[in-house]
Amino acid sequence: MKYTITIESENAPGTLYRIAGTMLRKKINIEELHVKEVDSKRHLSRFTITIFLEPDLMAKLIKQIERIIEVVHAEYRAVDK
């Protein structure tokens, strides 16, 4: 199943590495990636990441991503075919 994950995080060095590392642990390949600062006052960035994953693993992955200290919020949605 194809999913888009949206992650709001601190705009800090290493955050991408942490998120990518969480995916690497489950050997998930990143198909598309976009990062941009969305709130310069609060130094927040938004990651938009597209991956393929079995549906039952998706909610677990989001919870693992939300364990990252720099991550404020993460959510996902299935990509329409």
Binding site: A59, K60, K63, Q64, E66, R67
Partner: peptide, 8 residues
């Protein structure tokens, strides 16, 4: 206490 452990 760790939400990620629930349903893991």
């Amino acid at each position: 206490i760790d939400r990620a452990e629930l349903d893991k």
